[in-house]
Design a protein around this nucleic acid. Structure first.
Length: 492
RNA sequence: GCCAAGGUGGCAGAGUCCGGUCAGACGCAGCGGCCUGCAGAGCCGCCCUACGCCGGUUCAAAUCCGGCCCUUGGCUCCA
């Protein structure tokens, strides 16, 4: 069975194949602000794709660009005392972003190339485009001539005749066609752009950002050219998969295709995967709209597993709504999964490996879970259905533990392996070790309180027993009474 | 205006490629029961009779075709 993906370029579902190695380019992050859950949605889906490709036996070369040259970055210079230049701001948010990525349990990309480290490659690519007649210099800036590239608009189905002007208004007079876009911008950040993005009053000294020497004079790379230059540098002329947010299809990705194909004559990306937007209050989550939840805040409040389970609740290509209800649902789904895993581990630990018990229901469900999970993943990464398969396994484990007089050792072992391989390795969920056997001081104290409570219960002093339970709940210890006495878990 | 992605139950969200096995995936919410001192967790069962609208093709349409309405995104920075 092969992986099928929805390809924006082909405009349909296509079978994905590659010869052992897969090159994946994920576009991208602009380090001008704290990352929010909308950005993280793309990262998550790229991460799961990466993990699934590895599961299928591919070697994945995974590149995620870091855009550290941008008007929004220069606009923040001076906001903090140690932000004296564009690079300081970029460096600061790059660190925040990488920390957020670690917190989300994302596989590391192979390379995180930065624009500031690829200016020579960018200039070289622009020179090639000029030589081949696809680009022209004008007043120290360089523009891509969209009329010279016949396929322009093929990715996003735009008709050149219908296109309105691209880019800053103050650069339009230099362009041959309004739809041409900048490859290189003369000078620093223009006053208009600086003013537009300013969040902070700089008084007289509006920062213009870093500039570089080029054959056309001092200037800065345009927005789109960096992705072409960096992906070609690190992954070659033709990528297997290019991923990005749906909001970038036009103009950004369209322009990438034009630049790259014009320069190399080769296909740029064999497949384009676009991740739908995360919506909050009926519109997309966005730094500029202000309706965002930062990754660190979400991780703090929900934890990585709930965040990942939330993302796994909707297909990558669809939009997804973030509401109290959808978060509550993710919390519940994760709770069921983690408890299912935990119960299986606990039951397994208490079972003799020579146990003769066999639970057909459990064993069959383990196998159907694995089959269902695999076909769901191969079916355009249907994560909700893949998660549903694991929830079926949870049900089977619960049934087994509830009903069986003697546990099925092999069945439980397979169940635990399935949770950890599919939920853990593929979906990136982190199943914690069960807390029993955890001989910490806190644990001993909880045990002590519970033994006092048990004595009260036996004496029929339920009010006192409930007070003790409430007190434990208040400090984050969940108490559950069971047939073999009370158990507890540390909440969160 | 043009381009794109969508519109499925009380919520959320699969299924649409390849028409029938599909309408009640999974989860949440609701109801009843089991278990429990109570609660939680869990188990069993039930309810809700949702495919935007209008046509067309077909023995058969959530699925294919046409038209329309609505939502979101893009055409300025954007995951």
């Amino acid at each position: 069975m092969t992986l099928v993906v929805t390809d924006t370029l082909a405009d349909e579902r296509v079978e994905f194949t590659a010869d052992g190695d897969v090159t994946l380019y994920v576009c991208g992050l602009t380090v001008s602000d704290d990352p929010h859950l909308g950005h993280a949605r793309l990262w998550f889906h790229a991460d799961v794709l990466h993990r699934w490709l590895e599961h299928l036996g591919y070697d994945v070369q995974h590149v995620e660009n870091v855009t550290d040259v941008n008007e929004k970055i220069t606009a923040r210079v001076g906001e903090r005392d140690d932000w004296t230049a564009e690079r300081d701001v970029a460096e600061s948010f790059t660190e925040t972003t990488f920390a957020a990525m670690r917190g989300l349990n994302l596989r590391r990309a192979t390379v995180y190339p930065r624009v500031t480290e690829h200016v020579p490659e960018i200039i070289e690519l622009i020179e090639t485009l000029i030589e081949k007649g696809y680009a022209y210099e004008s007043n120290g800036s360089v523009y891509f001539d969209v009329t010279r590239f016949d396929e322009y608009g093929s990715l996003s189905n735009q008709d050149l005749e219908e296109l309105e002007a691209q880019g800053d208004p103050d650069e339009r007079s230099d362009k041959r066609n309004p739809a041409d876009f900048a490859l290189w911008k003369a000078g620093g950040v223009s006053e208009g752009a600086a003013r537009e993005h300013a969040k902070h009053d700089h008084g007289e000294s509006t920062p213009t950002g870093e500039t570089w020497e080029s054959p056309w004079g001092e200037g800065r790379p345009g927005w789109h050219i960096e992705c072409s230059a960096m992906s070609m540098t690190h992954l070659g002329d033709t990528l297997d998969i290019h991923m990005g947010g749906r909001d970038l299809v036009f103009p950004h990705h369209e322009n990438e295709v034009a630049q790259s194909r014009a320069a190399t004559g080769q296909p740029f990306a064999r497949h384009w995967l676009h991740v739908g937007l995360l919506e909050m209050d009926g519109e997309k989550m966005s730094s500029s709209i202000g309706n965002f939840w930062t990754v660190p805040d979400a991780l703090e409040e929900l934890g990585v597993n709930v965040v990942r389970t939330f993302y796994a609740g909707a297909a990558y290509r669809s939009e997804q709504a973030l509401t109290e209800g959808t978060i509550a649902e993710a919390e519940r789904r994760w709770e069921r999964l983690s408890r299912g895993h935990e119960r299986a581990v606990e039951a397994l630990d208490s079972t003799d490996a020579r146990s003769k018990a066999i639970d057909d229901d459990l064993r069959k469900t383990v196998e159907s879970t694995r089959a269902d999970f695999e076909s769901a993943m191969n079916d355009d990464l249907n994560l909700r259905e893949a998660t549903a398969a694991l929830l079926e396994l949870t049900d089977a484990v619960n049934r087994h533990v509830e009903a069986a007089a003697t546990y099925d050792y092999r069945g439980l072992r397979r169940a635990v392996e399935t949770f950890e391989e599919l939920g853990g390795d593929v979906l990136g969920l982190q199943f914690d070790e069960p807390s029993d056997g955890d001989v910490t001081l806190a644990g001993e104290l909880v045990e002590l309180v519970l033994s006092v409570r048990e004595a009260e219960r036996e004496a029929g002093n339920y009010e006192r027993a409930d007070e003790l339970r409430d007190a434990l709940t208040a400090v984050g210890v969940e108490v559950e009474d069971g047939p073999d006495g009370a158990t507890y878990r540390f909440d969160g």
